[in-house]
Design a protein around this nucleic acid. Structure first.
Lengths: 222, 222
DNA sequence: CGTTTGCTTGACTATCGTCAACTTTTGTGG
DNA sequence: CCACAAAAGTTGACGATAGTCAAGCAAACG
């Protein structure tokens, strides 16, 4: 993947960032991504890591026959693409149009050593990823289809709801299915069942969702 | 959980450790754990984190009705129990007798700031956990029972085989099932099917395994 | 040596996946 | 802005994989 291939880019000084305080030095490169744009693929050299400014990114792994597991959706504020080794261990694409900042991986050791604030941010990003991963393993390994979808809805509500319990999902049914370890049909059936049962409202065929019975969803969240 | 409740403990100087080089200062507390001993439970205050010296630890989460997901088995050299917040996000127990070193969490920020070697070790431990978690999500969400068991066997072979393709599993069928998102019956059936098909050898009812057709297992590993 | 714990095996079932048709929505070009 | 095509989503019928329940066997443990 080439950062240079991005739709739009702009350099800007550290002052504009919540990140390191190197006065005036450019620390990251902002990129605007169109829907579906690939940031990097599994196996690519890990030249950069990223922070989401707006929009949504999916990171995923594939099996040789094409089965896909989306391990996370990254939303505004999330850091992703950090690697221990030289290669990316998963692929990443824009779910919908997104704005991200790319940081050169080669600068990571220096930044971490010198800048305690940056270090804390990276460490806690990693730990949060790990926590999410652990919660998600519980979901994938042990929850039923209904429980998976309920958990997903509550998680999304927490992350993107304008807190009247309404939000627009940035991803397709297909992405949801590949995130929850289900098929698109099961996701569709479960969501519509929830609608019929009054747990949520799916306004006519959009990607919008409204929680109508949070308590019932939380009961399914086990 | 009480570190003091451990079966045996001993303090020893840093020189004996591959960890920080603070000459002569005790940096960790070694603990001998009997099979089944709980190190900490989900929700406990995270006073310590740990490094496995020998044996095996399982870390897991529970649903309210008792369904369990073992997110990882920690073997010699692995670091676990690091948390972003004040509480442990999962429980940890000795799968079999084990020796671990406990480090006080309160010392973590200082150690990380001062000791670049320690910092690298912690960072790469976290990143390796994350990589393992990502691989495991792919397994849980998208692999069949056969593929799950094949992947598990190859992973264990890599981690504990005396490299004549033979090893003794430290964990019970039950643990394997809760790690792979299967039932104990399916694990048993799949292993015995592999035996019948000549992929592995299960010497009469022990916990020992011998790989007989690694290529076939790797094909299932997708 | 007997009891407990772990493992295996069989019969049956349920949940979720597959396949397929159809509807709705979105996007594009005239 | 309409018309059509493509993409996304829904629904139904059916089936397969893995789960449940149950019984029996083997190992380990005191």
């Amino acid at each position: 993947m080439q950062v240079q291939a991005a739709t739009q880019m702009s350099r800007f000084p550290a002052a504009a960032l919540p990140l390191p305080p190197k006065a005036g030095a450019p620390v990251g490169t902002q990129m605007a991504l169109r829907k579906g744009k690939e940031l990097f693929a599994e196996g690519d050299e890990a030249e950069h890591f990223y922070k989401v400014v707006s929009g949504a990114i999916r990171s995923y792994k594939l099996l040789s026959d094409g089965r896909r597991q989306i391990d996370a959706f990254h939303l505004a504020g999330d850091i992703f693409g950090l690697e221990a080794g030289a290669e990316h261990r998963f692929s990443a694409e824009a779910v919908a149009s997104a704005l991200v900042i790319a940081y050169r991986r080669s600068r990571l050791p220096a930044l971490i050593a010198e800048d305690s604030q940056f270090r804390d941010q990276v460490m806690s990003a990693m730990l949060r990823s790990l926590e999410r991963a652990q919660d998600h393993m519980l979901l994938l390994g042990r929850k039923t289809a209904q429980e998976k979808v309920a958990t997903f809805l509550l998680d999304m509500a927490e992350r993107i709801s304008d807190d009247d319990e309404h939000f627009d999902l940035p991803m397709l049914r297909n992405d949801i299915a590949d995130h929850l370890g289900l098929t698109i049909e099961t996701v569709s059936r479960t969501l519509n069942q929830f609608d019929r049962d009054g747990l949520i409202r799916l306004p006519a065929a959009s990607r919008s969702v409204m929680l109508r019975n949070r308590a019932a969803l939380e009961r399914l969240n086990a």
